[in-house]
């Protein structure tokens, strides 16, 4: 292994050379194998890298590790409270499930690997076997249930109205002829148009660029209300300059269920995940976790979302369901 000296001076170049060396070694090893063994080795690589393995529990036992998907800023479900440390309601739930997996397989040393996911790639990564379980803010609906499987619902996001307390608005009916903001690219926009027409409210709907922009429209008085999922509204209020000025009002205008995502057609793992969740719900531990993340100070800056448990979630604790909300 004699490199030209000039190359060693440049760190990047060295890395290239080293990579090249190992690549070549790998190729030599591959070439040394007889043809049939090479085919088997290739098939093995394909299996690891992409082909779905339906039996998650077996995969975990064999590899000694479980991969949990986490979101980087889905507060308070799954987020990075500090660099490299995923935390949140969903992460706590996922860790309980990992405990149950350890008990079930009898392997105490199963490692937890965290893999960051986004709203675009979370479902494909679960489906292709990269991630074994994702507990974040993923909506359980029928379209997605064709690709992946959902555990028992663990949160219900209800579309409600964020208003200024001083505005004296208590329900949607109080908003007739007024301006309501909502976020572009959400189902709330559709819902708002429908309600305005059905209830003859003559609302002026202002589509905001994103959630923060919607809040800004309310804050600056350009809109009298901002319709969005209650948990997102609570998050915006939590970080507002003056949280006491705002309140979330009105009956739920639309409800979506959030649930952990796992691979489809894996009955054994689904039963284990569901039993763990139902166990938490029955023992009262679920409520404690809910209080910890939704009604107490949470990291990183010790603010409180102050979002009490919805009626729908209370009902779900009594009779757990894994079906979409509507």
């Amino acid at each position: 292994m004699a490199y030209p000296v000039a190359l060693i001076l440049e760190e990047k170049a060295v890395r290239v050379v080293i990579n090249q060396y190992f690549f070549n070694q790998g190729c030599k090893i591959m070439k040394a194998l007889p043809l049939c063994m090479r085919t088997i080795a290739l098939a093995g690589i394909c299996l690891i890298s992409g082909i779905t393995q339906a039996d998650t529990l077996q995969k975990i036992t064999e590899s000694g590790a479980i991969t949990l998907g986490y979101r980087e800023s889905s507060i308070p479900f799954s987020y990075l409270a500090e660099p490299g440390k995923p935390s949140g309601f969903g992460v706590d739930i996922a860790n309980k499930i990992v405990e149950a997996v350890r008990k079930k397989t009898g392997k105490k040393d199963i490692k937890v690997v965290f893999q960051a996911v986004t709203s675009q790639n979370r479902l494909p990564l679960v489906a292709n076997g990269t991630v074994d379980l994702e507990c974040g803010s993923t909506t359980n609906n029928a379209t997605r249930a064709k690709e992946v499987s959902f555990a028992v619902n663990y949160f219900f996001a209800e579309s409600r109205l964020l208003v200024k307390k001083s505005a004296q608005i208590k329900r949607l009916g109080d908003l007739s002829n007024k301006t309501v903001a909502t976020t572009t690219g959400t189902t709330s926009f559709t819902q708002l148009r429908k309600l305005s027409l059905e209830k003859n409210l003559n609302l002026s709907v202002v589509p905001a660029k994103d959630h923060a922009d919607g809040f800004l429209l309310l804050e600056s008085g350009r809109a009298q209300a901002f319709m969005m999922d209650d948990v997102l509204l609570a998050g915006l209020v939590m970080n507002a300059k003056n949280p006491a000025e705002y309140e979330i009002v009105g009956e739920p205008l639309q409800t979506e269920a959030y649930a952990c995502v796992l691979r489809k057609d894996d009955a054994a793992f689904k039963v284990l995940v569901d039993e763990t969740l139902i166990g938490l719900m029955k023992s009262g531990e679920f409520e404690k976790l809910y209080k910890k993340w939704f009604e107490s100070a949470i990291p990183p800056n010790g603010k409180n979302l102050a979002l009490p448990m919805s009626q729908r979630l209370k009902e779900n604790l009594k009779s757990p369901s894994d079906q979409p909300a509507s």
Binding site: A181, G185, T187, F189, V206, P207, A208, K209, D213
Partner: peptide, 18 residues
């Protein structure tokens, strides 16, 4: 679209979601 004018780009973003 960034300031809530319902012009073509905003229409495209919302309608393709719906």
């Amino acid at each position: 679209f960034a300031v809530s004018v319902t012009e073509l780009t905003l229409f495209a973003m919302q309608a393709q979601e719906e």
